[in-house]
Design a protein around this nucleic acid. Structure first.
Lengths: 195, 195, 195, 195
DNA sequence: GATGAATGAGCATTCATTCAT
DNA sequence: GATGAATGAATGCTCATTCAT
C-alpha cells in the first residue's frame, strides 16, 4: 500500500471514530483497531491524536473554502439570485457529502481547546468577511437590505449552520435542493409578515 | 454556611472554571480551589464532575424555558409583532446576563458526550416545537410565510444562536436592544432584495 | 503517618530500587511496590521519576558538603595532618554509611542526562575549588608540594572516589579507618620510591 | 562498499552519537541517520543497540590493554621510572586520542546495566591486578612503598581516571605530557609534606 | 545486501473518586 | 459536615526490532 494511501486510510477511520465517539471518548486504540494497523503505525503518519483531529478539521475548511464562490454582480451569465442559490447549494453539498466530518466540525471541534476554538473562529471570520463584502456590494446595487452587514452575515451563517447541524445530528431528512431552496427563500423574505 | 448556600457557591465557581477552561481542561482541583473548599466537600454536594456540569446546563435550560413566552395572537394588549420582539429580547437578555453559562452552553456542552448531546437536541427540539406551533398559528393568521415551519424554526434558532455565540465568544459588542432589533428585522424581511 | 514521614519512606525505597536496578531499569511500579503505596501516591510527593532521583543526589551532596571541613592551618588544637585525616575520615564515613546512595552517586547518576551531568560536575568543581584553596594555603606554609593545585585536587578526589567506588560496587571490605589511613599515606608519600 | 568498512562506518557514527547524547538518549534513528544507512541495515551488522555499545566499550578495553606495558625491573635499557612514565603516557595518549570513546567509557558506560557494570569492574580488576603485580615486584625491589598493593592500585587508577574524566568532560586543557608528568610526580611523592 | 514501513510491548503520568479521620 | 491523603484505572506515546520487498 502506498504511503499516502495508508495515511488517508488512517485519516478516514480516525474521522469515523471521532464522529462516532467524540474527541475525548475516541481512543487511539479505537482508531488503529478501526484502521487495522498497529498502534505505532498511527504515530508514523501523525504526530499525535490532536494532529489527526486538526487535519480533519483543516480538510473540511479547505473543502468548504473551495466550495464557496464569490458572488459577482457584474456576471452577465448568471443573476445574483442564481449565484446565491448556487453557492448555498455547493456549501450544503460539501457539508452533506461527508457527514462524519461535518458532525466533527459542528459538534466535536467546538470548545475542544482554545487553539482550535481560535481556528474555528478564524474560519468563520474569514467566511463572514467574504459574505460581508458580498452583502456590501449587494447594498450598493440595491439588492441587499440596508443595515449592519456583519450582523446579516452572522445571522445567515447561523441559520445555515443550525440547519446542517440538525440534519447531521438528528438525521432530519431533507433533500439537498430543498434545503437550498428554503434557505434561499428565508434569506429573501424572512418568515414574518406581521404588517 | 447553609447547605444550599454552599452548594450554589460551588456551582457558581464550577461554572466559572468550566467557562474559562472548558469541560475537560477544568479539573476538580480547579473548582474546589476556586470555591475554597476541600476536594471531598465537592463530592458531598455533587455526584461527580459530570453532574455539576449537567446541572449548570439544566439551569440555563430552565432559565431559558422561563424566558420564552408563547406568542398569543388573540392577545388584545400586545400585537404579535410586539410579543415576538419581547420574546427575542427576553431570550437575548437571559443569555447575556450570565455569559459564563452561555459560553458553556454554546461551546463546551456541544459534543461533550452522547448523553448530553441528546439533552441538547431535546432542548432545541422542545424550543423548536414551541416555535413551530407559534409559526403554524401565525400561518393560519396570515402573519407567517407559507412553508415548512420546522425549517423556519431551525433557521430562526440558528440565526439567534450564532449571533449570541459570536457576542459571547468573540466579544462582539452589540447592545442588547440592537441585537433584538436586527434579529427581528431579519425575521421580517430577510436580507436579499433580488427582484 | 505524617506527611514528611511518608515522603521519606518513599524516598528511601526509591533509593534502594535505584541502587539495585539503576535509573532506567527502575520502574515507578518497582518503587511504589517497595514502598507499599499506590502509584498515584508517588506523584503526590514527587513531581516525577527524575525529581526523586535528583533529590537523592541533592541529599548526598548536602550530606557530603556538611561532612567536609575546611582545613585551618592556624588551628592550635589540631595539626594540619590531623585535620586532613579527620576530613578524609568524615567523607569516607558519610559515603559508606549509606551505600545505596553512594552507589547511585558514583554509578547511576553518571551520564544520566546533561542536566544532571552539569550538577555533578558543578559539585565536584565546588569540592575541588575548596580543596585547591586548602592546597594553596598549604603551599604557602610549605606543607604541600609545589605544583598545579587544580591537578592535585583532581588526582586526590579521583583516588578517593575510586576507592569508595570499588568498596561500594565490588564489596571490597576495608574497615573505614583503614581506608582513611591508606588514603592519607598515599597523599603524603605517593607509592613510588624510584630513586 | 566493503562489508567490514560499512560496519566500522556505522560503529564510528554510533560512537559519536553515544558520546554526544548518552546511551539512552541516543536513538537507533540518530545513529543510522548519522551513518547514512537505513534502519534495517543497522541490524544487518549488529544484533541490537546494546551490542554496538558494548563493542565500542570492548574496543577501548582492547586498545587500552595494548597500550599498557608490563613494567620490567630487569629491563637494562629503560629504568623502572622511565617505564612507568612511558606507561602513563601511553595510557593517557590512548584515552585522549579518541575522546568520544573515552567519554562513553567514563560516563555513559557507568551504571548502564548490571552486565556492563560487571564488565567494567572486570576490566578494572584486570588492569588492577596487573598493576598490583607490578607494585608487588616493585616492593621486592624496594622501589614501591610498603603497604596494601591493591589499595595502591585502586588509588592510582582512580587518580588517573578522574584526571582524564575532567579533561574529557569539562574540556580542561592540559597537554598530554603535562598530564603524564604531574601524574608521575603525584605517584612519586604524593602532595602532602606535613612533617 | 539494503531498505524503511510496520509492529507492539512497555511505561510514565493524570486525575476523578473514595474514605478514614 | 468537612477534610485531603490515598487510590489505581486508564491512556497517549516511544522506540527497538522485524521482515516483506
Amino acid at each position: 500500500m502506498e504511503k499516502s494511501e495508508r495515511r488517508s486510510q488512517i485519516l478516514a477511520h480516525a474521522r469515523d471514530v471521532f464522529a462516532k465517539r467524540g474527541y475525548h471518548a475516541a481512543k487511539i486504540d479505537d482508531i488503529v483497531a478501526a484502521a487495522g494497523v498497529a498502534r505505532g503505525t498511527f504515530y508514523l503518519y501523525f504526530d499525535d491524536k490532536r494532529a489527526v483531529f486538526e487535519e480533519i478539521v483543516d480538510n473540511v475548511f479547505t473543502r468548504l473554502g473551495e466550495a464557496i464562490l464569490r458572488v459577482d454582480p457584474t456576471n452577465q451569465e448568471f443573476s445574483v439570485a442564481a449565484q446565491v442559490r448556487e453557492n448555498i447549494s455547493r456549501i450544503v453539498c460539501a457539508l452533506l457529502e461527508d457527514r462524519a466530518t461535518t458532525k466533527i466540525l459542528l459538534s466535536d471541534a467546538v470548545g475542544l481547546d482554545p487553539a482550535l476554538d481560535r481556528k474555528l473562529l478564524a474560519f468563520y471570520e474569514r467566511v463572514g468577511t467574504l459574505l460581508e463584502e458580498s452583502l456590501r456590494d449587494g447594498q450598493t446595487l440595491g439588492i441587499v437590505a440596508q443595515g449592519d452587514v456583519r450582523m446579516f452575515s452572522i445571522l445567515t451563517l447561523g441559520a445555515l449552520k443550525e440547519l446542517i447541524y440538525q440534519v447531521v445530528m438528528r438525521g432530519l431528512e431533507y433533500p439537498e435542493e430543498r434545503i437550498g431552496a428554503e434557505m434561499y427563500s428565508f434569506l429573501c423574505h424572512g418568515v414574518l409578515r406581521v404588517e
